[in-house]
Nucleic acid binder design. Structure first.
Lengths: 343, 343
DNA sequence: TAGGTTTCTTTACGCGAGTAAATTTTATGT
DNA sequence: ACATAAAATTTACTCGCGTAAAGAAACCTA
């Protein structure tokens, strides 16, 4: 790579000995030009290191090669992991992913949708905030931009939804817990952040009925995305009040469970499935840290890869078919029970 | 906001009754036009919802309003938190932040620098991978794009560095630990991911000398960014081999400590500062989860806000002064000791 | 080697704005 | 009310590339 900067495609075409329209064609699809000319262009490319101006490129193109990725809360490593997989797949497919986090706030989410509109993305992968989302803003957005929802569903919006099967999560944990010990009570936030929580509660109730168990749903106070702290405070109150109906607690999600376990430790309540333990705690999500809780957390794992992969794949289909799918599909993947020490 | 989409600034100028150049001026700086015309434009803006095409805007502009934010590993909530602060500050200042994570891989980092170049950002806030970084790639990048490094320093690169004062972290923890109990040994990775780790080790050694203590540095195997698992494995080996030189362990960072604590729990080693405890464990970073470990982790906290704020502020200065500062500055903020239950 | 196909080259225009220069309109102070 | 300064308009060109059309050149294939 030598120096002497090339200003524009005109100049680059000149020094590579190829016409500009052909060079332009090459940059859209290197395979669309004759191998010999392709070789000449690529030779020049190595010598002079030129890259087309993306702003000029995208100005005329009807659809850009950008893909927007929006998650509700990036400080949650669960989303960070998903993002990693999605990003890679987009890049491999020749797209340019742009990452956004709503940071748990509706105003942020709306701003992000606004920014996304102006970058004219080929498509958007959106994990909405959920309860806090501005439904009408999202609806309007989905009408203008090809969007696939993931993680958290909003009825009827976007071209498709890909997520995890909450029933599969809960049925496995409940079945396992009730088979190996006391029936679990269900521990959750009173006003959960997203619809998955509601589905999990319903799944719990349905499982209880199916197995003929008495259901106990414990709903704790707290709003926002600081789930660990909320879980911790809830557990402290519960434990100090001796208010647990059973010796087995099934948390709605791992982040609540992390807080719950920290409260147990602080209160000197031993958690686990061995004889000397007073409590069993299990949960859902297989949060990246759930392996390192004390004790390690028995949980139900998302199929991270399948969800990410399917979401991306579906978006590509949407893009290929011009931005709309004939009918909206909802795909959910089952969970995998991860047995660790907490239950 | 009514319908009837406006195609371009020409059209919008027409319906708002203002000439296009003036409208253009307005979008660069609403305060640069007379209040009365500003009002007319904004009235039209509410009725017709037009936004200038960012691609056309940025095509000619020498410097865009984009700011690149690069972190080494987004699945680490520490960075996610910093990003949140930085993003907000950028938006408030009228910039458009673009977020990138290197996901712990050099190839990613290099690709990101490449992408960044092509979006012609006004400036970049870069937290490099550190040891894994391609130094020469970063050097070249910094020469072409106004860049401020943060979190992890690379000698002489970028217009400035903003981070935390590793000596402040370690001196406080070492002083506290040695004052209240046995001298701490220092627990770290043999080949740490970034230079902060090296500085912390040196600070530990220097403190040991100053306080007249015998230093013990324990270096465990493992590479990559799965610090918790590495810390856990290291601790398991150490504990089962009874190889700890003292009853007090100072981990280089919280993520290692999280792994360490999980190993202690598993091995039945009680950690804390009360009589019945066998071990004290402390660490550095005040990781968002360190409050929820078992026991809660005594650590030294970054001044998240100061670092983020100063980094952004410095970048703005760089941008204002045309991309270069007279001389490169390094700013580090002191730590705050957070006393919890682990030591 | 002729004939038909592909692929390139030439030429030319469009996109949506930035921006400069000259001119006209509006605002300001006294 | 008038001179002056400030802001807006008109006009016209630029930027870097997409893209279409027509013709030239290179590529098969038999």
């Amino acid at each position: 790579m030598s120096e002497s900067k090339i200003k524009n495609m005109e100049e680059f075409a000149a020094i590579s000995g190829i016409s500009r329209p052909t060079v332009s064609k090459y940059f859209h699809d290197p395979a669309s030009v004759r191998p010999s000319t392709r070789a000449r262009i690529e030779a020049a490319l190595e010598k002079y290191d030129y890259r087309p101006n993306i702003y000029a490129m995208n100005q005329n193109r009807k659809l850009t090669k950008n893909i927007g990725i929006v998650v509700p809360y990036l400080a949650d490593p669960f989303f960070a992991e998903i993002v990693r997989v999605i990003e890679r797949r987009c890049i491999e497919a020749g797209f340019t992913p742009s990452l956004f986090s709503s940071h748990g706030e509706q105003a942020f989410e709306n701003d992000i949708l606004d920014s996304l509109r102006s970058i004219k993305p080929a498509g958007v992968l959106l994990a909405p905030l959920g309860r806090q989302s501005d439904k009408s803003a999202i609806e309007t957005f989905c009408k203008n931009v090809p969007t696939v929802l993931f993680d958290s569903n909003i009825e009827g919006m976007g071209e498709a939804f890909i997520g995890s099967d909450n029933y599969s999560f809960v049925s496995q944990t409940v079945e396992y817990l009730s088979r190996t010990g006391e029936n679990p009570c269900f521990f959750e936030m009173k006003t959960p952040a997203n619809p998955n929580a509601n589905k999990r509660r319903l799944a719990y109730l349905s499982m209880a009925e199916r197995l003929g168990l008495e259901p106990h749903v414990i709903q704790i106070d707290g709003t926002g995305w600081a789930f660990e702290e909320i879980g911790r405070q809830g557990a402290l109150k519960l434990l100090s009040g001796n208010a647990l109906p059973t010796d087995t607690v099934l948390c709605s999600n791992d982040r609540l469970a992390i807080g719950f376990l920290s409260a147990c430790y602080e209160m000197g309540v031993k958690v686990g499935r061995t004889q000397d333990c007073q409590l069993r705690v299990a949960s859902h999500d297989d949060h990246p840290f759930s392996k390192f809780t004390c004790p390690s957390l028995t949980t139900a794992a998302h199929d991270y890869f399948a969800v990410s992969d399917q979401a991306v794949e579906t978006l590509f289909q949407v893009i290929e078919s011009g931005g709309h799918l004939r009918n909206r599909t909802e795909t959910v993947f089952p969970a995998r029970l991860i047995m660790r020490d907490s239950a």
